[in-house]
């Protein structure tokens, strides 16, 4: 078989996988709707406000509920020492040039 034919077969297989990924995503999003609804119901019932993604500190656990002065809440010069704190967005007024 010619090299170009082998390449075409390879690229076609990769493109098929790419299309399959999009189809898989669409199907799984449709299938996940009841689970998403169940999560939303839990949030409604327990009146939750945040994702339990960063449980290392209280102001990273409840990002939307933390003090206004977070992450410098303990002292103005006390820099944030949790790894996820270094990734969290500073307040919007500090980002305005």
């Amino acid at each position: 078989m010619r090299l170009s034919d082998r390449l075409f077969i390879f690229i076609a297989a990769c493109l098929a996988l790419l299309v399959l990924a999009f189809v898989d995503a669409a199907v799984r999003v449709r299938l996940a709707e009841p689970a998403l609804e169940a999560r939303a119901t839990l949030v409604r019932q327990l009146e939750l406000t945040d994702l339990s993604l960063f449980t290392e500190a209280r102001y990273t656990r409840h990002l939307s509920q933390s003090d206004i002065h977070t992450a410098f809440q303990d002292h103005p010069n006390s820099f944030d020492h949790f790894p996820s704190g270094s990734l969290v967005l500073p307040p919007s007024h500090l980002r305005v040039p």
């Binding site: 995503a25 799984r28 339990s52 993604l53 449980t55 996820s84």
Partner: peptide, 28 residues
């Protein structure tokens, strides 16, 4: 979407002990 974004877990976990086990919903 099939490997629970395992490579990012150490970054997102930070110093936390509890980290949720979840497969992200594939919104593309």
């Amino acid at each position: 979407f099939y490997g629970q974004a395992a490579l990012f877990e150490p970054v997102l976990k930070g110093w936390a002990v509890i980290y949720p086990s979840f497969n992200p919903t594939p919104f593309v």
